[in-house]
């Protein structure tokens, strides 16, 4: 028996003379090439594909803001910098975007943080007391499983003795434990202006309950989390108003942040490796057998590297 692909999204009808070429393609029941390409834009189609239905005007408004706000986190961001690092070395375009996805997938400002934050929303809803309890619980877990200092790392790298096992048992998954409350920014002193501007504008286009609630309760949440709101927290909240689930939100966040990575990777590929920071003086080696001072060698900046 032939095994088929099951899909609630896509249907095809073949050309009469070629079973491997589609004559008509339907996305969630809509004729893509016969109708949709004349009537809808990228935002409508993106929402249709991910959420399986038509976005309301309000949801289109939210998506429109997000596509701009998230498109380019800027060249200092880990994901964009990863793409640039690929570009600077002359790597191919797919490698640049794969680099951006890898570095932008994580718990610190990445898509996993959006996923985690949306799960907090699912746990707490719009109940400030629940949020406060949840944030306190997250902080407690972070305290228990906090990242190791270099001295403690040495202990964990020891063989699998019962004591080193207990220090390591928090990591039961490929993902590391959160090191800050999801959706908040552990290094910022105050909520960054672009985060506030994005939230403000999203609230102006959405009557959805999550964004408004976040805007009203931002300060008390920040006090509880002991750090300011992050862009990942705003994005996660906007996804709640888009009525998508955490897995869909995680995927959208990865997608929407790729344009900037692509642009900066292209720029660095053209600029070349000599114009891209190597941090020649930035590495401090604590256990150099020759105790040679690192990073002073001018060869790192000149000549071709193989």
């Amino acid at each position: 028996m032939k095994e088929n692909i099951s899909s609630r999204i896509w249907q095809e009808f073949a050309e009469a003379d070629d079973p491997f070429s589609a004559a008509r393609c339907y996305c969630c029941g809509y004729d893509v090439f016969g109708e949709l390409i004349k009537k809808i834009d990228w935002l409508d189609y993106l929402y249709l594909l991910i959420a399986g239905g038509r976005a309301t005007d309000e949801q289109r408004g939210i998506l429109k803001v997000l596509t701009v706000a998230l498109a380019n986190p800027g060249p200092r961001d880990h994901s964009v910098q990863a793409a640039m690092s690929a570009g600077a070395g002359g790597s191919g375009s797919a490698a640049c975007l794969m680099a951006a996805l890898a570095a932008g997938a994580g718990n610190f400002g990445g898509a996993r943080e959006v996923y985690q934050t949306m799960q907090v929303w699912q746990r707490c809803g719009r109940d400030i007391q629940q949020w406060q309890l949840d944030l306190a619980s997250q902080l407690q877990a972070i305290t228990t499983n906090r990242p190791c200092t270099s001295e403690e790392t040495t202990a964990i790298n020891e063989p699998c003795s019962p004591s080193s096992v207990s220090a390591d048992l928090a990591n039961a998954d490929v993902w590391l434990q959160m090191e800050h409350p999801a959706g908040f920014s552990p290094y910022a002193k105050n909520c960054p202006t672009p985060v506030k501007q994005t939230l403000l504008h999203l609230v102006s286009v959405s009557s959805g309950s999550h964004l408004c609630w976040l805007s009203q309760h931002r300060k008390i949440l920040e006090e509880t989390a002991m750090m300011p709101l992050a862009m990942s927290g705003v994005a996660a909240t906007a996804f709640m108003d888009l009525n998508v689930d955490p897995e869909q939100g995680e995927m959208l966040y990865l997608l929407l942040r790729l344009p900037g990575a692509a642009a900066h990777a292209l720029e660095q590929r053209e600029n070349g490796w000599q114009d891209f920071p190597f941090f020649a003086d930035g590495l401090s080696l604590r256990n150099d057998p020759l105790e040679t001072e690192m990073g002073k060698n001018p060869a790192a900046r000149h000549g071709e590297l193989s």
Binding site: N4, I5, S7, F13, P19, F20, A22, C28, D31
Partner: peptide, 18 residues
């Protein structure tokens, strides 16, 4: 493993207009 069009089993909404 090329797949002809008919090997997508569609179970979504019926054909409709935008």
């Amino acid at each position: 493993f090329p797949l002809p069009c008919e090997r997508i089993d569609y179970s979504g909404p019926a054909q409709r207009q935008w």
